[in-house]
Design a protein around this nucleic acid. Structure first.
Lengths: 185, 185
DNA sequence: TAGGCCATGTAACCGGTTACATGATTAG
DNA sequence: CTAATCATGTAACCGGTTACATGGCCTA
C-alpha cells in the first residue's frame, strides 16, 4: 500500500487537508497500522488532483495559514474500491525488541531487563493512545479496529509480564564464541 | 534496524551464508519480525567483511555451488551489543487489512467478507508456520519469541472470529457521498 | 524437459524520509 | 522570549527491492 492509495482511502472516509492526513497517519486513529510523512503526502495529493481523483478548495481562515481541503471524486472512490478488490498485501511487522528477545542469551542481564521495561512502557503508551483516541470517534469501522488493537496489546502485555523472567533467566548465558543456530535447514 | 545490523545480529547467534540469512528472515524463525532480500544482504555482508566485523570461509561441496560461510568477529559482536544498548526503535506495523476494516462501511458486503476470510487464512498460516518451525529449534530466546507470536496470533484470530459480524453488518452502508470523518482535532 | 532448489552477486530503479524554507499565531 | 501549532511545499538523499545473470543438480 503506497501513500497514494492511502490518501485515497482516507479521503473516501471524508474531506481532509494534507496536514490532517499526516496527523491521522502518525498520531491519529490510522497511526497504528500505516505511516507517511509530509514529503510523500503532499506530492501524492498534488498528483491525485492532476489526475482528477481528488479535488481541492482553499479555506481562508484568519490568524492561521490557508487550508487546502481535499475531497475524493467519484473516480477516486472507484480507484480505492478497485484497490481493495485485489487481495490485501500481507501485514508488515518489524520489531527490534523481538530481535533482542531472540538473542537474549547474548545480552547482559541489566541490558535485557531495560529493553523489556522499555517495550512494556511502549505498549502501554500505545494502549493509552487508543483509549483516549477512541472517545473522539464513533463510526463502527474505527471502533472495531480500536478494539482489535486493544485486545492485541493486552495480550502482548500479559504475555510479557507472565513470561519475562524466563528470558531474563538466560540473559548473558550465551558466550560470543558458542554458536547456537546453524541456520536454516 | 538496517540490514547491516540484522546480519550482525544473526551472525552473533551462529555462522551462516547469505543464502541462509535470507531464508531465516523471509521464511525461517526470524521472518515474523524482520525482512530483507538478496539485493541488500549480499552487499551488506561484503561491506561488513571489508570492515572486519565478519570473516568468511569458502566451503566447496560437490553437486552444489560453493558456499561462503560467514562468522562474526569480536568487533562484530561488539558492534551488535552496542546497537542493542541504545533504545530499540519502536515496532513498525502496517496492515492493509485494518485499513479495509476501518473503511468497512464503504466496502460491498461480499468484498469485505472475502477480505476477512483471506486475513483469517493468512493468520492461520502464520500460526502453522510457527508450530512447524518451533520443533526445529530449542534455544530459549527463539522459543520465547515463538510463544509470543503464537499468543498474539491466537488472540487476533479469536477477536476476528467473535467480532467479524459487527463489521459485516455495516459493510456497504456508507455511501460515497456521506463523509464520516472530519479528520483530526 | 520444465521447474524448483542451491548459491552468489550486480545494477537500475523507486518510494519514501529527512531536512529545509517560510511565516503568522498562540501558549507557557 | 521561546517553543509549539498551524500549514504547505521542495530537494537531496538513501536504503532497499526487483529483476537479471549464471549454472549445476534433482524431482515430477
Amino acid at each position: 500500500m503506497n501513500v497514494r492509495t492511502l490518501c485515497l482511502a482516507i479521503l473516501s472516509c471524508g474531506d481532509a487537508t494534507g496536514y490532517e492526513i499526516r496527523k491521522l497517519v502518525t498520531e491519529g486513529h490510522f497511526s497504528h497500522f500505516v505511516d507517511a510523512s509530509y514529503g510523500s503526502i503532499y506530492p501524492a495529493l498534488n498528483r491525485l488532483e492532476k489526475e482528477g481523483l481528488v479535488t481541492s478548495r482553499e479555506e481562508h481562515q484568519d490568524g492561521k495559514p490557508t487550508r487546502k481541503v481535499y475531497s475524493g471524486t467519484e473516480a477516486g472512490y472507484a480507484e480505492f474500491l478497485d484497490a481493495l478488490s485485489k487481495p490485501a498485501k500481507r501485514d508488515i511487522y518489524k520489531s527490534e525488541f523481538l530481535l533482542q528477545a531472540m538473542c537474549a542469551e547474548l545480552i547482559p542481564p541489566q541490558e535485557l531487563k531495560r529493553a523489556i521495561d522499555r517495550h512494556v512502557e511502549y505498549l502501554e503508551s500505545q494502549l493509552d493512545l487508543i483509549d483516549t483516541d477512541v472517545k473522539k470517534i464513533a463510526w463502527t469501522g474505527a471502533d472495531w479496529v480500536a478494539n482489535y488493537g486493544r485486545c492485541n496489546l493486552h495480550e502482548a502485555l500479559r504475555f510479557i509480564r507472565e513470561n519475562r523472567q524466563q528470558l531474563e533467566a538466560v540473559a548473558g548465558t550465551g558466550l560470543p564464541d558458542s554458536p547456537k543456530v546453524t541456520a536454516a535447514e
